[in-house]
Computed example of a mutant assay.
Amino acid sequence: MVSSKEIRASNALINDATAPRVSVFVGGTSGIGKLTIRALVATGASVRIYIVGRKSSEERTRAFIQELHALNPRAEVIWTEGEIALLADVKRVCEAIKAKEPRVDLLFLTAGYAPFGPRVETAEGIEIAQSLEYYSRILFVLHLLPLLGQAEAPRVVSVLGGGLERASSVDVDDVDLKKPGNFSGVKAQIQYTAMNSTALEQLASDNPNVTFVHSWPGWVNTGNVDRSSNPNSWTAWIIRNLLGPIVRLFAMRDDTSAQRNLFQSTSAAFGGRGVPWTGKPGVNTLEKQENGLFLVNFRCNCTPNAKVMSVLREKAREKVWTHTLGVLGPYM
C-alpha cells in the first residue's frame, strides 16, 4: 500500500513543470472525476481542464467552475457539453478539442453507472452502461491519441475495476450481451471491466509512449448505486436501499479518494514519467515494456493480475478488439 503521507508528499510536488497542463475529464461533473479535478486545481498549478458532461449538468458544473477559479485563478476550466453515451457526440466533442489543442497530457475517464435493471439501449443500439463504461471511453482514447502523443508524459486513466478481471469474464460470442436472456447487471459489469483491461492493454502495446491506468477506486460515495437505467425496477430499489447505506458507511473520505486519483494521474510510479517518485515502481501487465497498462487499486497498489490477463490476452483480446473497432469505425 502506498501510504497517504507518501501520496500527499508526491501531490505536493505538482507545479507548473510537473502538472498535466491540458486535461480532459469525461464524467467530471460528479463523483470521482469532480473530486480529482478539485484536487488538481488546488495544487495551484497553471492548468487547462476540459469537463465533458451532459446538458443537464451544465448549470451545476458552471457553479463548480466558478468555485475552482476562486480556488486557483491560474486554472482555466472549460465546460464542454456532450451526450457521451452517443458515440456520434463523442466524436463531435473530440473534434472540438482537437481543433483547439495541440496536445493533451491527461485523459481521465469515469462516466458510467452500474447497469442494474433491464437492458436499455441508446439510439445507436448500444446498451447504455456499456457505451459509457467501454465504447465511449475507447473512442475518446482513439480520437485523442495524436494529442496525447505530443505530451511529455501522456496518461490515460479509466476508473472502473482494474485488477478485478476474471479469466472467464468475457463472452466472446456475445460481446454486447444481446442474446436473449444473456444480459444481467452483474454479468454486464464484470464483462465491461474485463473489456476495459483487454482494450487498454492493446492500446498500451501499440502506444508505448502513453501510460494507461485502469483503476479500481474502492468504495467512494459517488451516488453511483442510486443510478440505474430503470430507477423504478425492483433490482434498482434493492441496490439503492440495501447496498447504498453500506457504501455510505464504509466509503473512504472524498479527499482521500481525490488525492489517490490525483497520484495515479501524475506520479512517475506508473511508467516512470511524471512527478518524481523514489518509492517502489508500479508493475504493468506488459512484461517487456517499462510503460504499459497499470491495474491500480484504491490503495494505489499495482497488480498485473498475470494469470487472468494471460487468459484474456490469449482467448479474448483479439476478438474484443476486432469487435470494438467494428463498432467504433463509423465514428472515427
Rank of each mutant, 00 (worst) to 15 (best):
A188Y: 07
A188C: 11
Y192M: 15
T193C: 14
M195S: 10
N196E: 08
T198K: 01
A199T: 13
L200W: 04
A204D: 02
A204T: 01
S205F: 07
D206H: 02
N207I: 00
N209L: 10
N209W: 01
N209T: 14
H214P: 01
S215V: 05
G218S: 07
W219H: 12
G223E: 08
N224C: 13
S228T: 03
P231N: 09
S233M: 08
S233F: 03
S233I: 06
W234K: 13
W237I: 05
W237G: 08
I238D: 10
R240K: 14
G244Q: 03
G244H: 05
G244V: 04
I246A: 08
I246P: 01
R248A: 13
L249V: 11
F250E: 05
F250M: 12
A251S: 13
A251W: 07
A251Q: 04
A251N: 09
T256H: 10
L262D: 09
Q264P: 04
S265A: 15
S265L: 06
S265M: 07
S267C: 10
A269E: 13
G274T: 11
P276K: 12
G279H: 02
G279A: 09
K280A: 15
V283D: 06
L286W: 05
Q289R: 11
E290C: 05
F294M: 06
V296H: 00
V296W: 00
N297Q: 05
F298I: 03
F298V: 09
R299S: 09
T303W: 00
P304W: 04
V308T: 14
L312N: 03
L312R: 00
E314K: 12
K315G: 06
A316C: 10
A316T: 02
K319G: 06
W321I: 04
T322G: 07
